[in-house]
Design a protein around this nucleic acid. Sequence first.
RNA 1: GCGGGUGUAGCUCAGUUGGUUAGAGCGCUUCCCUGUCACGGAAGAGGCCGAGGGUUCAAGUCCCUUCACUCGCGCCA
Length: 605
Amino acid sequence: MHAYRTHTCNQLRAEHKGQTVKISGWVHRKRDHGGLMFLDLRDHYGLMQCVINTDNPLFSALEKIRLENVISVTGEVVARTAETINKHLPTGEVEVRVKAFELLSAPVTDMLPLQVNSDEPYGEEVRLKYRFLDLRRDVLHRNIVLRSDFVSSLRRRMTEQGFREFQTPILTASSPEGARDFLVPSRLHPGKFYALPQAPQQFKQLLMMSGFDRYFQIAPCFRDEDARADRTAGEFYQLDVEMSFVTQEDVFAAMEPVIYGAFAEFANFTGTRFKITKPPFVRISYDESTLKYGNDKPDLRNPLVITDVTSVFNRSDVEFRAFKEILAKGGVVRAIRTPKVSDRPRSFFDKLNDWARGEGAPGLGYVIFEGMEGKGPIAKFIPTAALAELQKLTGAGSGDAVFFVCDALDKAVPLDGKARTKIAEELDIIEKHTFKFCWIVDFPMYEINDKTGKVDFSHNPFSMPAGGLKALNNDGPLKIKAYQYDCVLNGIELASGGIRNHVPEIMERAFEIAGYSRGTVETKFGGMYNAFKFGAPPHGGCAFGIDRMVMFLADQKNVREVIAFPMNQQAEDLLMNAPTVVEPNLLRDVHIKLDLPKAQVKAAS
RNA sequence: GCGGGUGUAGCUCAGUUGGUUAGAGCGCUUCCCUGUCACGGAAGAGGCCGAGGGUUCAAGUCCCUUCACUCGCGCCA
């Protein structure tokens, strides 16, 4: 017989009746009846009930084994009587009658900091410090398995389409993404640093210029920025993709079946099958998205749509001064048509108004339509003809309401977006159990940096500007669009990508517009620049966030629920105790002397 | 860096207008229990109420400071 097991804890069925088997695992739970004890043994695969009674000399020894000890049990598989079958367990028709057992782990003597057999919501700190216990628990364990299976599925689907997986360096140079770099000091080159890649952006482009045609990688990416619920501190994984001789549509066509297929494969993970938009995913321009949804990552499960109604409040017969004053300064009025709410109590509208004030707006104006008439606090400022125009623009009918946001464009848009979400949440009209994908296309190439007031790249500086060199030279920078796109799912950005700029002349000009002197590209991205000069194919790609995709499939609100060993919000690994102070000789090796803020000097010494 | 929330037993939490000895469930120890599957029952151990300061006859509770965790903002094209 095998030293540890002949079967796993999820294998035994009625057909094994009469066999002597050996199983190994953790003591999940004990039910001690004095003369008779049941013990659930747990391994990765499942649970198996073992049973022992007092005529067995091992009884008292087994009775003393505490939860989470690792033991092996040898015994006979016996059928349970009809009344004692457990339908909730795949192994519930049988049990193992203990003949022998062996403690395989060091005996557990300390109190468990968290109970594995419970689904209580434990505090993050305990969960992260004792992650190995947390990972034994059912939900997290299954999430990590899902992640593994999902990544395998992505790999298979990519490979089947002729993509090859490559590895790229972890110790590299600073890349063009805008986040802070993690730095690694060089021992051989005093005063010089490697940077961990924020993404393998330059390497994947270089692979295209090296003639490999179709690249992908499940790539670790490192960015020294603060965490959010949907964004881990420090590091994350992307399905990173690049292709040669492709247009934007080719990238979409390659990725849609991969993403759709992998999502469809695991859409039932939670036990409720999610609906998924089938390819082709709808394409929405950046401009349209910011107008209709108030941001560049629309949640298409939300049926509400925003329209511009500035013209209504510009009419001479409309006398709503609060808006007119803002319009005079170049502001806009945006409207959210909200169907079938005329029967809602005043408190519904007041609540939304209070919410808007909490967001820093003066309020959230509204008009309720009853027939051709307008109701509500500001309706009296809008005469019938203007109301008719409002109805025409928004599509609002009798029984509908229209909410207004009036502000400068750059303030109105984000508030619109939030209001659209808020109203839909209040009405509970956001579609459930649905994955709605879309591509946002035609991002602006440049934007005004609101701190410096200067022109800045709004996304990846390596993207090809629409219209090429001609557009760069002739059009205003803010009018130029880029071949830059995002894939958005349910209001969250899943992927970003672009068709790359592979022409050195266009790249020089593009950087020049963003305020970099000629030659910057060559000095800053020398390897790339050289490659552009010696025969670069047109190419493009994208990168999908693995953590977020798994988070969606697992229906979790926090990425830490789909990462085996995440850091906490302060970017600390409580299990491994990182970051930590290091021995002075290690610092000497890399030519580093610390110059710490006063308060932290003590902690580091 | 800034704002919100939380901090009470190993874990998850309750704790009234400030008022006797700070409670419950799980876990742990001892005992009872031969068909449970979140087994049941009895008893017990276990607390610097995050830390420091203050108000008060009296503070888990009120005030100030501080620390930790968390959510959000900034940041992350």
